[in-house]
Amino acid sequence: MSQVECFDADRALSRIRELKHLDGPLLPMLHALQDEFGYIDEAAVPLIADMLNISKAEVQGVISFYHDFRHQPPGRHVLRLCRAEACQSMGCGKTISHVEQRLGVKLGETTPDGTFTLRDVFCLGLCAHSPAAMLDGEPHGRVTPQVADALIDSARRRQ
């Protein structure tokens, strides 16, 4: 289950300060913040910019470049469905439409009750078990619509 917590500037500062000594510390800092809060709060941008002596635009530019980084908290569960070629060849499109219909959201969106964020992904390296998916960081193979239903049900039970 992804941890979503309120942004806290002091905690954010201490996380990024720990990484300041690294060569090229920006990506590790952004990952650390996202691990800590579940997302990168806009308020963290000036903190990082100050610490690294770069402009806020540069920090924002990096955040917006990478598909992983987000400014909004995700749902309690993040379900990622692969839609790259290997999974296409095994009908990932069917699974994706099914899950979209079941959850009532499109890829990239979060259910109104905040339970699920649905995301696509281009390859999880599970291409011999297509269609593949990742639920809260755990890999799943042969994700037919039925398997997807079971995954969603199990996540709901855990919440």
């Binding site: 090229g24 510390p25 920006l26 990506l27 590790p28 990952h31 598909h67 992983d68 281009f122």
Partner: peptide
Amino acid sequence: RLGAGAYICGEETSLLESLEG
């Protein structure tokens, strides 16, 4: 080091840029 979901970072010069932050 961990990437952040950008296919292009498999291109060697993009990867270096990414490592540099």
